[in-house]
Design a protein around this nucleic acid. Structure first.
Lengths: 222, 222
DNA sequence: CGGCGGTCATTTACACTGTAAGCGCCCGAT
DNA sequence: ATCGGGCGCTTACAGTGTAAATGACCGCCG
């Protein structure tokens, strides 16, 4: 170890103090690059140049960290605003949420895990309800509508996260899977996979497919 | 330890040999009662009266166990059959899936995790595709339709698993939550929660709400 | 200026996780 | 009779979350 006095001064100068926010930012970055299951107290602490137990002076436990970074992610979604074109608002909001959840691949599962929502998530919920209620939906209808839309967003995002996205790769993956899908046992699944293996261009976007379905259905109920 | 010879004979008589199936059954039971996050090799082994490492003679690792029990759950869902009343088939299949996933509360998240499907899951997928294609949907349409429906099932089930189900309890929970939802910051969310706190009877079932939406939308596309 | 209390990083420790490596028993085949 | 392999066990290790106690620093108050 070098001269202690120098180390001290350089520390007090360079190393800014730990804080809940700094911990959450580091944890968020770690989860994004290594996955949530790889996130551990010691790893986050390491990235901050600190020992694991030091984190407990600012956060209460690991669940607290996960709740914190999940709410940070919720804060990245652009909020819908009351507007006559509520479908457009919902579509924009859905695509924003989808983009954000792809950027933080571990987050969609957390959104669905059912833990109590943080403040960011609550403003996101509130804005969505407000947008729907402004165009005539009852609170209950708005609630159900939001649930249905969100389920679609989360489900679609989760499934897209594990499959290749470019047409080229989809075809290659499908060819590989085809060997483990005997046509005798799974005729329809086999046929569909064959189709995917030979597809050259990306098909109609599934996301808008289901979303339009839901929005149009909601429109009729209003 | 008692007389070894007696112990041996009683063991060879009473204790049936370990097997992949016995392990999966024990693991499934454990996950159902204690949750998937509490499932560990030692716990499962303990329930079988055996040491943890013995399991590895029949399964390759913990992920293998989880994949196995997940596929067991998939096998419990009643399959749809090709029928003119495809909406009825889809509705029945959805409700069966929902019931099964409530019985195994950890499973819905696994279904959505995107791991390669086991044989039971694949016959489930194949039957669904078959039912849809039999009434005129193209393979791609059937695929998208199934995805949209399943997202709804999983999402709805996951959310129902964390909230109280009886109207009485919903109201009580809503009253408690109300304190952490200041009307100033979250007016619409607050209003909706208020409504829930005063609701006496269960509302229209959200599940059928969204499902009908989707099925009707699909019908128009066919 | 002296010391005192509070803040906060650290050290040590414990119970628990998945699983690699190797031991030894028993059983069935040669 | 012996050998080989299947299979349960023991031991071991690296890693997990976190409780408890230690100690360095800082600003405040006398």
């Amino acid at each position: 170890m070098p001269d202690p006095s120098q180390t001290q001064t350089s520390q007090t100068q360079t190393r800014l103090p730990l804080s809940r926010d700094r911990i959450l930012v580091a944890a968020l970055a770690y989860a994004d690059t290594h996955g949530l299951q790889a996130l551990s107290m010691r790893k986050v602490a390491g990235d901050l140049g600190v020992e694991a137990m030091s984190l407990y002076n600012h956060i209460s436990n690991k669940a607290d960290i996960i709740a914190g970074i999940t709410d940070l992610v919720a804060g990245e979604i652009t909020l819908p605003t009351p507007d006559f074109d509520w479908k457009g608002e919902m579509r924009a909001r859905s695509q924003s949420a989808h983009r954000v959840l792809v950027k933080h691949p571990w987050a969609a599962a957390q959104f669905q895990a059912g833990h109590p929502p943080g403040p960011m998530m609550m403003t996101y919920l509130d804005a969505t309800l407000g947008c729907l209620m402004a165009v005539g939906f009852t609170p209950a209808q708005a609630d159900h509508a939001r649930n249905t839309i969100d389920n679609h967003i989360y489900g679609y995002t989760l499934q897209k996260l594990t499959r290749p996205t470019r047409a080229r790769e989809i075809a290659r993956a499908a060819k590989k899977e085809l060997k483990s899908i005997p046509a005798a046992s799974y005729p329809h699944l086999h046929r569909r996979t064959e189709e995917l293996a030979n597809a050259t261009s990306a098909e109609v976007d599934d996301f808008d497919f289901g979303l339009t379905l839901i929005l149009d259905g909601l429109d009729a109920l209003r």
